[in-house]
C-alpha cells in the first residue's frame, strides 16, 4: 500500500493507506479526528469540508494518496493555543448550530468564505457562498448571522 505523508493540524502524519481511502476516512479512521463528518454520497452536503493548503475542499471527494505533502486543517485544528477561532466563537454566540453535525463543515467553509471575500460580506454573498453546505436544523438564519459576525471578528 502506498505511504502518504501530510501535515494535519500542524502535526506531521504518515501512514500506509489503501489507495481507495478518501481523505475523510483517513482523518476519521486513521487519525481518529472524528469532527469531520460524512452526510452524503454525492459531494453536496459539505459536512466533510476541511482546508487543504489553505483552501476549502470536500474531504469525501479527495483521495488521501493524492495529498502527499499537503497541509490539512480540520475543525479540531482551528482553535489555536486553547483559544477558539473567531468563527467558532461567532457560531456559538449567534446560535449558528443545533444538532452540530453540519457545524464543522459549516465553520470550515465560513472561514474559507471570509478568506476569499474579506471581512465585510453581505447576506446575499454569504448565502450564495454556502451553496455547498446543507443544514437541516437552523433554516440557515443564524448560520448566516454567525458568518457575518465571524467575518467582522476575523477582520480585526
Amino acid at each position: 500500500m502506498p505511504v502518504v505523508s501530510m501535515t494535519v493540524n500542524g502535526k506531521a502524519v504518515s501512514a500506509d493507506v489503501d489507495p481507495r481511502t478518501l481523505l475523510v476516512h483517513y482523518l476519521r479512521e486513521n487519525l481518529r479526528l472524528t469532527g469531520t463528518h460524512v452526510g452524503c454520497d454525492t459531494s453536496q452536503c459539505g459536512a466533510c469540508v476541511v482546508m487543504v493548503n489553505g483552501a476549502s475542499i470536500k474531504s469525501c471527494t479527495a483521495l488521501a494518496v493524492g495529498l502527499q505533502g499537503a497541509d490539512v486543517t480540520t475543525i479540531e485544528g482551528l482553535a489555536k493555543d486553547g483559544k477558539l477561532h473567531p468563527m467558532q466563537e461567532a457560531f456559538r454566540e449567534n446560535h449558528g448550530l443545533q444538532c452540530g453535525f453540519c457545524t464543522p463543515g459549516m465553520i470550515m467553509s465560513a472561514v474559507d468564505i471570509v478568506n476569499r471575500n474579506g471581512s465585510k460580506i453581505d447576506e446575499k454573498t454569504i448565502r450564495e457562498e454556502l451553496e455547498g453546505n446543507i443544514c437541516r436544523c437552523t433554516g440557515y438564519h443564524n448560520i448566516v448571522k454567525a458568518i457575518a459576525a465571524g467575518a467582522e471578528a476575523m477582520g480585526g
Binding site: 483552501a55 475542499i57 471527494t61 457562498e129
Partner: peptide
C-alpha cells in the same frame, strides 16, 4: 460551477 469547495478542486 458547483460550490466553493468544488471550485477549489
Amino acid at each position: 460551477i458547483g460550490d466553493p469547495a468544488v471550485r477549489n478542486r
